[in-house]
Design a protein around this nucleic acid. Structure first.
Lengths: 337, 337
DNA sequence: GTGAAAGCGCTAACAC
DNA sequence: GTGTTAGCGCTTTCAC
């Protein structure tokens, strides 16, 4: 099953390889007579010609591959993003290489190097930390790079994310409207833009409602259920009364609810809680989680489109910051104070 | 930020490119004097040399890329598989390209062609249908290919999956042990090996317990919650009494539970139900789902190892069929008849 | 509109 | 142990 090369197609069509190349390339097709195009295409079809992208890439220094860097594909936040990106990329004839950094900076460094070695045309990065040397490197290299979900302090790169500020504000407003005044925020890690921005939005929204934020923000070490458990333990230990929690994401909310339940606190009778992202199955929990719905698939798709634009347009770097609209989905975990 | 080429490294180290190549290649490093290796490596480091995998691949006809073909990354069954595969592959210096077929055969055809054009060294396929021309093509092409999760009727390719037979048998035994006799199976689609094999295992297990399978198997059109809903509707309409359900996977179980709840049937009081796969969050439902735990990450990892073996060993095709052990996790959805 | 020739960056076969 | 040479499969000037 040896692979058919362009030369063979050309020979079969009775033309020079260069002509065959032109006939097969949509870009250059019109430099060739229609009848030749026909003959070449037929020959290619007949022989089952599959172009060698490596060889083409070597020549054109374009690989038609985009890399997507994810911290943990197992976190249901990311699959929809991957999917959105893949669809757009595939639609444009690009291939997606996926790399899961397992939240490990050293691993990520190696993977990025490997991707670059493979000559990828661009990166979509979902792992950005607030201060991120790797992303800074990427930005410095001039390789088209789009940040998704999380931004970076340093690099001025295009970014596609959710309107976090508005999401958190919706939560606080909803809770305040239900009469809650002692509202606590389980903040995401300070080395992520989402953690920082959701926390500052929380503070702003509380202020706007004339509510105090003294000791109302608990920092979590990560975005996992376990980090949520730990935070809730601290909350309980602190002994400060609260009637509502705004968690920086769904997983934190889940972990916190578990611990609180172990302490005999039931939801929404004893406390209300909101999540963020609306992961799959959140509506199936008991009670179903009130949370902020984020258009994750769109996020991936828009990120991919932004990247493609940069790769193909060649007309310099746009640094568009796109914030996708979010929506509060009120379900069972929030009730009157 | 022009990319540094091997020539430049060689020049900096004062050697011929070929020598630099050897020094940098672990395979051929011992054909070069230690001091030269030192010099070349230092030069490469200093210049920030990133080898061009495309060029190497063109020369060696090996790209160090493996493709993973997934029907729907959004289905939580697949992310753990992806993750397991990615880790093993990355550990061996391979890059993973991911393609999500969206369960669409036409799309899949195009994607496979594109992957082949990119010169991938092998495929891990999680989309296999029972009769699958695309997989047959792949098998015929001689390209290293490993099937994961689902097998194929036709192709004799290595396969890594779960011990479905045993999983279903465990469910039936558990249910029978609780006194259930009217047990129904929500079968997966007949064009998947998992659907077929779980159904036949169900029949066998029922027979072994002296239970009738007359009208006890309902075929679902897919593996989605919605397919589960539809099947449950049919079950209710049919009016045939039942006290327990063995669903071919978790999603089907979830959909069925929803419909049954709408009909006023509560679980486990009015009926028991088991799932398959133990997706994330299944233990968080109310009641938590009794299901068969499958080592999904391992499945991905073993599939990747099998593929690597084939790619690197070159000593012909092994067609090992690996069945990973499963385990019944008894939770809240099963109770006495 | 088509052919000829050169070369993308690397490595393998062969010299020495 | 290291240099020389050739070529992987394709595209792209440049002639004609």
């Amino acid at each position: 099953m040896a692979r058919v090369r362009l030369v063979e197609v050309a020979r079969a069509a009775g033309v020079h390889p260069a002509t065959a190349s032109r006939a097969l390339n949509p870009q250059a097709r019109d430099e060739v007579s229609a009848s030749t195009v026909q003959r070449v295409q037929r020959a290619a079809e007949q022989l089952g010609y599959v172009p060698n992208t490596l060889a083409r890439g070597l020549r054109t220094s374009r690989s038609f591959v985009a890399a997507l860097v994810i911290p943990d594909i197992t976190n249901s936040l990311f699959p929809p993003i991957v999917r959105g990106a893949e669809q757009v990329l595939a639609g444009a004839g690009f291939t997606l290489v996926l790399t899961d950094t397992n939240n490990d900076v050293e691993l990520e460094r190696g993977q990025l190097a490997s991707m670059r070695a493979h000559g990828v045309d661009g990166f979509i990065v979902a792992t950005a930390r607030w201060e991120d040397a790797l992303v800074a490197d990427l930005a410095g290299s001039g390789l088209p790079t789009v940040l998704v979900n999380r931004r970076c302090d340093s690099a001025s790169l295009p970014f596609v994310g959710a309107d976090d500020q508005r999401g958190v504000r919706l939560c606080v407003e909803h809770l305040a409207g239900l009469g809650h005044r002692a509202i606590v925020h389980l903040a995401g890690p300070a080395d992520t833009s989402t953690g920082r921005e959701r926390a500052s939005a929380f503070r702003a929204a509380m202020r706007d409602h004339g509510l105090s934020t003294r000791a109302a923000v608990i920092s979590c070490t990560g975005y996992s259920e376990n980090a949520g458990r730990l935070a809730a333990e601290r909350l309980v230990k602190a002994g400060k009364p609260f009637t509502a929690i705004v968690a920086a994401n769904d997983l934190l909310a889940l972990g916190a609810m578990e611990v609180l339940a172990e302490h005999g606190l039931s939801c929404p009778a004893d406390f209300s809680i909101t999540g963020f992202n609306d992961l799959a199955f959140m509506r199936k929990l008991t009670p179903p989680l009130t949370t902020v719905k984020v258009p994750l698939t769109d996020m991936g798709a828009v990120a991919a489109r932004t990247l493609l634009h940069w790769i193909l347009a060649a007309d310099g770097i746009s640094t568009t910051q796109t914030l996708l609209p979010v929506e509060l989905v009120v379900r069972g975990t929030t009730g009157p104070a």
